[in-house]
């Protein structure tokens, strides 16, 4: 009976940990393979331990060119989509206007459309319009699918904001611009930063839409796709592991900052001196 109760209480967590294992296994394998010296170009097995791949990540020069190109595209697409998406989020949360339903639909649809359809339809447009495909058509496509995610992320932050803080600033004779600059923007900034990081990671990792609109330009995912037919250099796993490490560091740093900010806020509230005025 005791055992049954214990099991009834724990089996969900047990299943959950197994599923997490399934989700984590490939990352462990990628990290392991980054230390591998494959016996042949088409080998996918772990053959021999080496540090060479980490010491010379750019031994295959094409790959590093592709990584740099992906970063350039990612940065441009991030800046443009973050600006466009943030402006839209402000309009949607802060202003009344006609055509709100249609606008919400236009923003929602790209997130619900298969990438395959967006990629092929853009290709059809560029070909019909005679636009040669390459670096800039990739940027255009990436901005297109990132904007909606930026809008959703910034909107969530804006909607959760306490409007009374801005009203208080206005009551204290701050001008509209001062209120925006000193109160609104700092409060929304974490949402904008989160949206920008999301946009960058979406852009950096995109394969399907890029594949249809790249012409002869090679991004990192395009390089990996091509290499999968010819044999994957182990340095691909170095890039994969490094990306994972950087993302993990960013998440760790932001959660630490969040915790410190919460603690500081608690300290302010808890200190009698800050609440009772002389």
């Amino acid at each position: 009976m005791e055992l049954r109760r214990w099991l009834a209480d724990r089996w969900v967590m047990g299943v959950a940990l197994l599923v997490l294992g399934y989700l984590t296994l490939p990352i462990v394998v990628v990290a392991g393979l980054s230390f591998n010296r494959p016996s042949s170009r088409l080998s996918y097995d772990f053959d021999e331990f080496t540090l060479d791949n980490w010491a010379h990540p750019c031994a295959t020069a094409d790959m590093c060119d592709a990584v740099v190109r992906s970063m350039e595209i990612g940065l441009i697409a991030t800046v443009v989509s973050t600006v466009l998406g943030t402006l839209m989020a402000f309009a949607l949360v802060r202003h009344g206007f006609r055509g709100r339903t249609a606008m919400n639909g236009l923003i929602f649809l790209p997130m619900a459309t298969p990438e395959l359809v967006m990629g092929t339809s853009l290709l059809a447009l560029f070909v019909a319009a005679g636009v040669p495909q390459g670096f800039w058509t990739i940027v255009i496509a990436h901005v297109m699918f990132c904007v909606s995610f930026v809008v959703v992320t910034v909107k969530a932050r804006l909607a959760g904001m306490d409007r009374r803080l801005e009203e208080a600033a206005m009551d204290l004779y701050a001008s509209e611009w001062q209120t925006f600059r000193r109160i609104t923007l700092p409060l929304v900034l974490p949402g904008i930063v989160a949206a920008a990081l999301l946009a960058f990671s979406l852009s950096f990792d995109d394969f399907i839409i890029t594949n249809f609109n790249a012409g002869t330009t090679v991004t990192f995912p395009m390089y990996v796709w091509g290499a999968a037919q010819r044999g994957i250099p182990p340095q691909v796993n170095v890039i994969g592991t490094a990306m994972f490490g950087i993302a993990l560091l960013l998440v760790g740093a932001s959660s630490l900052r969040g915790r410190r900010a919460r603690r500081a806020a608690l300290a302010v509230v808890a200190t009698p001196a800050s609440t009772g005025r002389p």
Partner: peptide, 24 residues
Amino acid sequence: LLLVAVVAPMFTSFLVRTLAWKTI
């Protein structure tokens, strides 16, 4: 921590992870 573990796979490239399944 567990939530981070759920999204952690998305920190690295989709294609590289899929290729890892080839090894597994």
